[in-house]
């Protein structure tokens, strides 16, 4: 079950309204708006969809279709931090499959799940552009190189403290 929404309906609508207003005159602004809502709230709440649809002159289905198409959009709240493990070929050549398994075991969750303490989402990702220093891991916006299972535990401990 997804954790309950950390934002009140009022917050969601005021944040969404102001983001939509900011981009009212931009052509094809839907991705800009969705990116901004997710950056602000951590996910795209279901109740934001009709607001966005109305402002962008789209149907709710169209907005939902865009949200569900892109891998990085979340439609439910997740944990405080997102752990992206690169699982593309260059990282696989350096042990990313084992690292993913280790990460899953260490955090106690499967891919796309959130830890029970709500601290970490675990996400496989296909290429972080750090292919010469594989395997790569990104926690939120911070990139890590040559991550061994031991390193992984260390960077998770550091992220836990912040």
């Amino acid at each position: 079950m997804a954790p309950s929404s950390p934002h009140s309906p009022d917050t969601i609508s005021s944040v969404t309204d102001s983001i939509c207003a900011k981009h009212a005159n931009t052509d094809g602004a839907l991705l800009i708006i969705l990116n901004a809502v997710q950056d602000e709230l951590g996910y795209i709440p279901k109740s934001a969809v009709p607001i966005i649809a109305k402002q962008q002159n789209l149907s709710r289905a169209e907005v939902h279709g865009v949200i569900s198409f892109y891998h990085l959009y979340r439609d439910a709240p997740g944990g405080k931090n997102t752990v992206y493990i690169c699982c593309a070929e260059a990282c696989q050549a350096m042990g990313a499959r084992d690292l993913m398994q280790h990460a899953s075991k260490h955090l106690g969750v499967e891919s796309h799940q959130t830890t029970s303490d709500n601290l970490f989402n675990l996400e496989p990702i296909y290429c972080l552009g750090n292919c010469a220093c594989a395997p790569a891991v990104m926690i939120n916006d911070t990139l890590h190189a040559k991550v061994s299972p031991q390193n992984f535990e260390k960077i998770i401990e550091e992220a836990r403290k912040t």
Partner: peptide
Amino acid sequence: VRKAAGAYICGEETALLESLEGKRG
């Protein structure tokens, strides 16, 4: 400068254009 949202197919030029227009790629 526009930020994508994690879809490999958007590296294909026409999918990229759809995405820039705010649509599914």
